[in-house]
Amino acid sequence: MSDSLPLAEVAGRDETASWYEATARERIAGLLDAASFVEFVPPTARETSPHLHLFDLPVAFDDGMIVGAGRLQGGCVLVAAQEGRFMGGTFGEIAGAKLVGLLRAARETGGGCAVLLLLDSGGVRLQEANAGEIAVSEIIGAILDARAAGVAVVALIGGRAGTFGGAGLISACCSHVVVSEQARISVTGPEVIETNKGVEEFDSRDRALVWRITGGRTRVLLGIADRIVSDRIECFREAALQGVRQAPAFGLATLVAEQRRLEQRLRTLGECRDTPEIWRAMGIDEPGDVADLGDEAFAAVVAGQGTRHDAR
């Protein structure tokens, strides 16, 4: 064993630690101030799904949802992270309840603690659909209550499972949304569209098409996300900090402005069939090249748009 390589050490000082590659727990660990995270209802509590055993499916001791409190650059944050590798990060009864509880606790802080949602989810868990659907609506209600109480709710999106179904709806209710290029946000997933409307309507195996429609770059240009960062945990940390600080107030004026923005978007882009048309309509010279730009060059395109989406 003497010639075993100290590989763990190599992994530890990997400054390029990828958000996309990381587990939910690795994301939390890299995002927050060192050793500041305290988990609520941890795996040792064994709060597992009461439904999965009916389908002879394995459970996870955290039900794929990790919630707790920690520090971000010294400031108080409440954090929820979905594990996309367990059942596609789906919302089941336990996972949903943990997030609702966290959001209600956040409301009680009256803005003292911001919320970070590390979404990585295919939506409602089909095996516990009713509980999951109820959970999603309770989560949306709890986010809006927390925001009304002055809490900033920041979504961080860039995992393998994307943000689909109920998770897509939840992301739209947040104060601020950060994505990476790998992120996907949508309500109806590509396979579901293909199944219902045919491959001519949407070829879910054409990955370039999937990302062109639902991917991080498109979503930030459309104002569905507010900020795009490189796929590094470090970059998400920096963006989370800014997102907490810049979160807009939540009141009637904000909602009216958001309604105007959406109406305007529908007027100018509502007829577009595919993303390059949208980008051309937005005045981007070479819409075909947008996907191939480096992160910095793309950031310049976004900056050139001058769009700020603090209407949320």
Binding site: S18, Y20, E21, E181, Q182, R205, D206, R207, A208, L209, V210, W211, G215, R217, A291, D292
Partner: peptide
């Protein structure tokens, strides 16, 4: 760790087909 990384290693000379992209 991704096709995109391979494109980077190739100094953008490798042009992966659509079905292998996630960007």
């Amino acid at each position: 760790r991704s096709i995109r990384d391979l494109v980077g290693w190739s100094k953008d000379l490798y042009r992966p087909p659509s079905k292998f992209r996630n960007w």
